[in-house]
């Protein structure tokens, strides 16, 4: 969105500030990195780089991108949501156990409402009682895991099976590259993108993250915003949980735990500031794609999981440092 009355006298492309703001406001750096990765992949990559491979990457990137969307929203306010992993796992698991008795639509509604309640508690803790979001959501992830375990014991007789509709949605691909999960992802992504740029709620997320005192003095009640934010985040995590269950065809109470840190990493790589006030979902999507491509590349080349972990860690630190320099005051 262009600011009103920007009077750039000289050619704006030639000034350092223009470049800086380009990197800051648009996910240009991660996009370039992604292109670079793809070039490397096609030059040196193994022969199994194909359209089927691309379909697999998209399929795996979708749930990560949704969870990273949760982090993006929370990080814009200066928060973080570490409970998305537990909520996603529990959602996938509970739907699988419920679907036999209630039918799929009812199971989905029940689970998303339950996820929303978990988010509401997060929101009350962070927004009303001012518990630090890191602590609040970490605690909530333990509580949700515990509840899911209780549920598992209760339901041990009925057994669980991932609903076939989820398997199609999570794993299947049409026209060899387009995963069905895009049916879920495209509307979700549009909602987040437009919500951040074009709605009052989106503006307030940025405002609260950038300067909570200013937001308050302008009349914003930040607890309301935070409350709604964490509910949205938890519901999105539930939806991502359905896709992950469908993708792996497993219903387990720890299914999505390994997504938590990559979801933070994807948002950071995409240029969202963990201090709040700056970033967006566009970059986050690219960040999720980068991580997925790297994972796929490493496993195709036969590197062990440990290499991926080390690489992810190094990338997060390097990227965070680089963004700090690019967007610094002087």
């Amino acid at each position: 969105m262009r600011a009103v009355g920007v009077a750039e006298d000289r050619n704006p492309w030639l000034t350092a500030a223009a470049w800086r703001s380009l990197f800051r406001d648009r996910p240009v750096i991660p996009l370039l990195a992604l292109l670079g990765l793809l070039v490397i992949l096609f030059e040196l990559g193994p022969s199994n780089v194909s359209s089927a491979w691309a379909g697999g990457v998209f399929r795996a990137a979708v749930p990560l991108a949704i969870l990273a969307g949760c982090q993006t929203l929370a990080m814009l306010t200066g928060g973080i949501d570490l409970s998305v992993g537990a909520i996603a796992s529990a959602s996938g698991f509970v739907v699988a156990t419920l679907v036999g008795t209630t039918g799929l639509p009812a199971a989905i509604v029940i689970v998303l409402v339950a996820a929303g309640v978990a988010g509401l508690v997060n929101g009350i803790g962070v927004g009303v009682f001012k518990v630090h979001p890191l602590i609040m959501t970490l605690g909530m992830s333990l509580v949700v895991l515990g509840l899911a375990n209780v549920w598992q014991v209760q339901r041990v007789q009925t057994g669980a099976g991932v609903p076939p509709a989820f398997r199609t949605l999570g794993s299947d691909v049409f026209l060899t590259v387009i995963p069905y999960s895009l049916i879920v992802f495209v509307p979700v992504a549009l909602l987040i993108l437009l919500g951040l740029r074009r709605t009052g709620f989106g503006r307030l997320l940025y405002a609260i993250g950038d300067n909570p005192i200013a937001a308050r003095l302008s009349g914003a009640r930040s607890w309301q915003v935070i409350l709604v934010l964490y509910v949205i985040s938890a519901v999105l995590a539930g939806i991502a949980g359905f896709l992950i269950a469908g993708l792996t065809n497993v219903a387990s109470v720890t299914l999505a735990d390994s997504y938590v840190l990559p979801s933070v990493a994807a948002a950071v790589i995409g240029g969202t500031s963990i201090m709040g006030g700056r970033g967006g979902f566009g970059g986050t999507i690219v960040g999720a794609l980068i991580l997925t491509v790297i994972t796929s590349l490493l496993s195709a080349l036969g590197y062990p999981e440990a290499v991926r972990q080390i690489l992810f860690g190094a990338i997060i630190v390097a990227v965070a440092a680089a963004y700090t320099r690019v967007t610094a005051e002087s």
Binding site: M1, A3, V4, T199, G200, F201, R203, L204, Y206, A207, D210, N211, I213, A214, A215, L217, S218, G219, A220, R221, G277, R278
Partner: peptide, 20 residues
């Protein structure tokens, strides 16, 4: 420093009370 969103645009700063 109490009243402004330092990283946001002039427009968003001025329009902030509209959306609260």
């Amino acid at each position: 420093a109490e009243a402004l969103l330092p990283q946001r645009s002039v427009r968003e700063n001025i329009a902030l009370p509209f959306v609260t």
